[in-house]
């Protein structure tokens, strides 16, 4: 638990997909962090964590992007982002530099301060004051990087359990990859399609009306597949439900029927 007299200052790591596709996820994250007593700043020097280059094998560009990100996020007590995958990438940064390189120590320092949001709320802040009017049956997909690189499993469930209206039905194979995998889903489209098809089948079997998760890559993938299959399941990032930011449509849904304009 944090010292109550001290307001922690958070450097928010926005993440590309949230910035581009789902700004509401970032606003919801800020709302949650502020409700938990933090001061949130948005470092302007940040871009992407560099994972696309890292996983393509372009280590030189990855290291350049890492140096940029490390610099942008220095000086904040904590760095928090709404993605296990992107925060997991920040945790890979020390691998990019030789131990004697000064950047190695700076990468280590960032790794020690960087948290995915549900993990930060539960593991660091021990926050237990979630207030949300959300009502409905949900199921939760455990995104791979968060689950296996950062140990995120119980944290999102602990937070959802604080919402009276949430009924969580676990799907089969919630820990199996949805087939997104960054550029994998385009490079190996047929295999990815099979994997996401398995996933949407397991989602549909739960009967849940809402699918939640902590990573937009996976969520966009599953939302797109559910819609193509005509399965009536709404897909949202977990922070939208936790922060009660539900006034706009779910992923890939039309804003028009809600009477909103672009």
């Amino acid at each position: 638990m944090l010292d109550n007299n001290k307001q922690p200052v958070i450097g928010l790591f926005v993440t590309c997909l949230a910035d581009l596709y789902r700004p509401e996820v970032v606003f919801a994250s800020i709302k949650l962090l502020e409700a938990a007593g933090c001061r949130v700043e948005v470092p302007q020097g940040q871009t992407c964590c560099g994972q696309p280059a890292f996983n393509t094998g372009d280590f030189s560009n990855t290291a350049d992007i890492a140096r940029l990100t490390i610099t942008a996020l220095e000086g904040y007590e904590y760095v928090v982002g709404p993605s296990g995958s992107c925060i997991g990438m920040l945790h890979h940064y020390p691998e990019l530099f030789q131990p004697e390189d000064p950047w190695h120590a700076r990468a280590q320092a960032l790794k020690a301060r960087a948290f995915e949001i549900t993990s930060f709320l539960v593991d660091v802040l021990q926050f237990s004051n979630i207030k949300s009017q959300f009502k409905g049956q949900v199921t939760y997909h455990d995104s791979c990087s968060g689950l296996r690189e950062l140990g995120i499993k119980q944290q999102p469930r602990a937070l959802l359990a604080q919402i009276e209206g949430v009924e969580l039905t676990e799907m089969e194979e919630s820990e199996t990859c949805c087939g997104f995998g960054g550029t994998f889903c385009v490079k190996y489209a047929d295999i990815s399609n099979r994997m996401v098809g398995n996933k949407t089948e397991n989602v549909a079997k739960t009967g849940a009306s809402t699918l939640l998760g902590g990573d937009l890559g996976c969520l966009l993938n599953m939302a797109g597949k559910l819609q193509r299959e005509g399965k009536d399941v709404q897909v949202r990032h977990i922070v939208e439900v936790l922060a009660d930011e539900l006034s706009y449509p779910a992923l890939g849904e039309s804003a028009y029927h809600l009477g909103k304009s672009l």
């Binding site: 596709y21 509401e24 606003f27 489209a189 966009l220 819609q227 672009l262």
Partner: peptide
């Protein structure tokens, strides 16, 4: 340009202007 994606799934469109822009 991303037929690997849209051959098999819909692509959700962004819900509003980028976060950075709005912020």
């Amino acid at each position: 340009v991303v037929s690997g994606w849209t051959d098999h799934r819909e692509m959700p469109a962004p819900s509003s202007k980028t976060f950075m822009q709005q912020w």
